[in-house]
Design a protein around this nucleic acid. Sequence first.
DNA 1: CGGGTACTTGACAATGGTCAAGTGTGGTGG
DNA 2: CCACCACACTTGACCATTGTCAAGTACCCG
Lengths: 233, 233
Amino acid sequence: MKEYRHDALKRMKTIPLFKGLPETQLHDLSRITVLRTFGRGETIFAEGDGADGFYIVLTGRVKIFKLSSEGKEQILHIFTSGEPFGEVPMFLGERFPAYAAALEESLVLYIPKTAFINLIHKDPSLAMNMLALLSIRLKHFTRLVEDLSLKEVPQRLAAYLLYLTKIKNKTEDIELDISKGQLASLLGTIPETLSRILNKMVAQKLIEVRGRKIRIVHTEAIELLASGIKTLT
Amino acid sequence: MKEYRHDALKRMKTIPLFKGLPETQLHDLSRITVLRTFGRGETIFAEGDGADGFYIVLTGRVKIFKLSSEGKEQILHIFTSGEPFGEVPMFLGERFPAYAAALEESLVLYIPKTAFINLIHKDPSLAMNMLALLSIRLKHFTRLVEDLSLKEVPQRLAAYLLYLTKIKNKTEDIELDISKGQLASLLGTIPETLSRILNKMVAQKLIEVRGRKIRIVHTEAIELLASGIKTLT
DNA sequence: CGGGTACTTGACAATGGTCAAGTGTGGTGG
DNA sequence: CCACCACACTTGACCATTGTCAAGTACCCG
């Protein structure tokens, strides 16, 4: 990890969390924040670390994950540019309940607790932005819990493929934005299981796979799978 | 469901969400809220209903849950006196993403969206209270995801038993606060599986079970289970 | 070209769910 | 006060899904 003093004011203006915040306050804030870079795979914080501040992704991607006692990983979130992480345990004055690591070379902004707490008491728009943020995150978790408890892996995978087509506005040809190993962890399973299910889908002519590139051949069937109406035999 | 006009001002003062709110505003709010009672098992809202307001439990208990396409239930939350629910989808202007039903005869306060949105813009303490609330809820979900994905049912059950001892400040004799069927749904499993695991624990002299009353005989072993160090063979 | 990582494949084990048939048990009404 | 019904829970036999372990292959980066 490398650390820099900086003048990231321009960058901070584009962060949704700071929308509506007076420029002067943003300027003050920028002077006590720190830029940090993390290499691919590098740990940003570990479960149990004290949360004396939080982070915002500027470039790259960061995963938040838990580890089981046997070492299995469950990804809770993947954050990209402009998204804050680690702010909840900071609010609560607790330790981080999960790990954070860079999925790729990433630039993040570190914001110390006291500075932010002062600011949020001064400016109501910051509190409202924060509320919106946490609300969206809660919704995300609701779906994650639902998936893990009530759906099988093929259904979760189908839903993820459709999600990719949606955010990329492509209907058929998509490219995984993470490795298959990481995808397995995101879907709450392991690489072996994911591999087998992809195979099955290929065998049933639902999709074609070439490395990270996936072509959805039978969209209808994938949608039926994702909605839980059908199962993958 | 029965509905009443009311003067629940006294009750509203005791709700943590409204802590620090000027009495005048609370009074205004109380005049546009509605009291509703729901019988045991009665639905309060269904997934997909428009969220034109949210609720606060005054007496009784309310479960928030999802249903799979085959009818399996996963409880996301159980809320008791003083706790609000349904506020997140209301914030986001979306439909309820889950069901809510009364676990027992319950009295709830219904708060229409517009009144609350006005209030939150006027009073920053309300936003801060809300932030604290959502933060705690996120933490809860983090643990739920972790449990569902990384732990097995006996470990989740052990953790729940320890949780009961903690909130009741008892070390050995505890009483389930919900039916075993509902407990299964809370732990992300089904009654049959829960029943078998309780049996196993009894057979291994970890606990004794008499209806809803459970006595933890071998606390140490339960703690090892809950922490994931041991498994139940 | 070499080496490591990511991914795949196979044989196997186990956790947990399904289905079906009991066994209570508490509450209500006769 | 007792009988009965509904409902919660239990138990057994079975099976599906998914994880484990162990090799092997492909692929990318230096």
